[in-house]
Amino acid sequence: MISAESVDKLKSDALRLIESAGDENFLVDLRVKLLGKKGELTQLMKQLGQVDAEQRKEFGGLLNKAKQEVEQSLSSKQKILSDQARRAKLEKEWIDVTLPKKQPLVSDAPGSLHPIFQVQQELEDIFRGLGFTVVDGPEVEKEYYNFEALNIPATHPARDMQDTIWTTAGDLLRTHTSSIQVRALENVKNTPPLRIVAPGKVFRYERVDASHGHTFYQMEGMMIDREVTVGHLIYFMRTLLRQIFGFDPKIRLRPGYFPFVEPGFELDIWFNEKWMELLPCGLIHPKVLEYGGIDPDKWQGFAFGLGLSRLVMSRYKINDIRHLQSSDLRFLRQFS
């Protein structure tokens, strides 16, 4: 008949057996013996119905506790044994990692560079030729550099234009490479001129489909000098596009709204018999210059943001943005 002692004894015997187990099969059998349909613990459980209510409560508690302990012990022992077994198996594959064994890598694969990487490299070379330095900045960014310092205060409706991915620490993943702007200004201190481009990943809180990714690539460009005008901006953009396309594309500038430039533009190019939005740009807003510690009466500048992913997709006719973040060799090898 069930008693506190019988439960206790069953438990301690079981735990001792588990502890002494040497292989996993033994544990499997033991589990059946204890917890199976006709297992010893199960049998005791069944006897609960025959004792009076008060005792039933007491024994029930004891039994449950015992069952829990046994189960826990079984699974932790099982883990130890399976780790041991795995290790023993892998130990047969021991190699001397310090051995300078000649084992050349032979492959007939052509090898390939990622299309983003190729186009980025090409653009960097163009910009270096125009006197721009290629820099990069953090992808996990302070709200300040991504919004505040770009003249986008917390209450600004433009924050809604870019759905942001936040970190649990209250920082964010940059929503545009423009976050480099004030960092660059701080870095030059009071000694412009400055000409930089900053390519890299940007992130948006966006459902992923063929034309939307939560990750894509941009390239920010920025120039600070004395007496910079809209005419200069147009000159640089045209020079840039001429080099990218190898001919003078038909372009148009139209008003575009970005709080960190004034005036702000969208630059469209005539492509496939229609206007395609390619390049937001503008003169740097005086407030942004001030955030970076630059006197807007002495220095002006322009900034632009190239949609690298978009450029790559249109150049190679890639129809799904998700390919750009995949490791599919059938995709990658097309760019050898």
């Binding site: 492959s107 090898g111 990622h114 983003i116 993943l173 992130f203 090898r333």
Partner: peptide, 13 residues
């Protein structure tokens, strides 16, 4: 790496 036959990929952060 490309010369040795490797393909470059980009993956999510």
């Amino acid at each position: 790496l490309r010369g040795l036959g490797f393909s470059q990929y980009e993956s999510e952060s």
